[in-house]
Computed example of a mutant assay.
Amino acid sequence: MHDTGGCIYTGLEKDYTIEDLAAFHGHLGPYIVLGYRMGKYVRRYFCHDPFKMSAVVYCSGKTPQSCLADGVQIGSGCTLGKRNIELVVSDEVKCEFKADGKKLVMRLRPIKFPPRDDHHYSELIERLAADMYGRDDTDLFTVSSN
């Protein structure tokens, strides 16, 4: 565990609501939800201390995939300010987390996006993101330790 040095505002945990994610990110989309869920998973099952962990988000480097990084920051506690998160341009969308000499790799399960030409696209994307927020982890991503 990270030495708090007597600080009372270190090591706090919070479950963020859909509204919290949307307020932070500017809107609610599938990739911020996925990143948040991945980050929460890694804090729960891999490394609880965001000062001992690092994250690498692999994606196209463009929205909407890059929005995964915002969710990972909120969920895992790895942040740009602490310099323990990095975005790497890649054809594959995945996240790698490292802590204490161990590595955890998380890959997204296929996502069925609504057609972009649907005039209700924004509403459908928001509905998809809200639905993903409540799904089981196993429906959203796979986890391996390699």
Rank of each mutant, 00 (worst) to 15 (best):
Y36M: 01
P50Y: 02
T63C: 09
R43E: 03
K82L: 10
V57H: 00
C78H: 05
S122V: 08
I74L: 15
D131Q: 11
D136C: 12
R116F: 12
E92Y: 06
K98N: 09
S60C: 07
G71E: 02
C78Q: 04
K14I: 11
D118S: 09
G134F: 09
G101N: 08
G39E: 01
I125M: 11
R37D: 02
H120T: 07
H48K: 15
A55H: 01
T142Q: 12
C47N: 07
T63F: 08
K102L: 09
L12N: 11
T10D: 11
N146F: 14
F51M: 15
L128S: 03
S122Y: 10
Y45T: 12
R127M: 14
G101R: 04
I125T: 04
M53P: 03
D15P: 06
E13G: 13
R109G: 07
G81R: 14
F51D: 10
V33E: 02
D15A: 15
K14M: 11
R83V: 03
R109F: 08
A23H: 10
L104N: 05
T4P: 06
T4M: 12
K14W: 06
Y9Q: 12
M106E: 01
C7S: 15
H2F: 13
M38N: 01
N146Y: 11
I18P: 03
Y121W: 08
K98M: 07
E13R: 15
E92V: 12
H119V: 10
C67H: 13
L108Q: 02
V33P: 00
R83A: 08
G35M: 03
K112M: 15
I111T: 05
I85L: 04
V33M: 04
G11R: 05
T142C: 08
V42M: 07
S66I: 09
Y121M: 01
R109D: 06
T63V: 08
E126C: 14
E92T: 13
L87K: 14
K102F: 05
T10C: 14
I32V: 15
T10F: 13
C67Y: 08
R116N: 10
Y16A: 09
R83D: 07
S90F: 01
L128K: 04
K98V: 05
Y45V: 12
D137T: 05
A55T: 00
F113V: 02
Q65A: 10
L128C: 04
G11W: 05
E19R: 13
P114D: 00
E19K: 14
H25F: 10
T10G: 09
T63R: 10
L68G: 01
P115D: 14
C7I: 10
P50V: 01
D117A: 11
M132T: 06
I18V: 14
L104G: 04
Y9V: 12
A130S: 15
P30W: 03
M106F: 04
T10R: 14
H27M: 12
L80S: 12
S122R: 11
I111E: 01
V89C: 07
A129C: 04
G77R: 02
Y31L: 15
H25Y: 11
G77D: 01
Y133A: 08
D3S: 09
Y36W: 03
G134C: 09
G61Y: 00
F24E: 06
R135E: 08
T63K: 09
C95K: 05
H119I: 13
V93I: 13
S66R: 10
H25N: 15
L128D: 02
K112Q: 15
C59R: 03
A22R: 06
D139F: 06
T10S: 13
I74T: 04
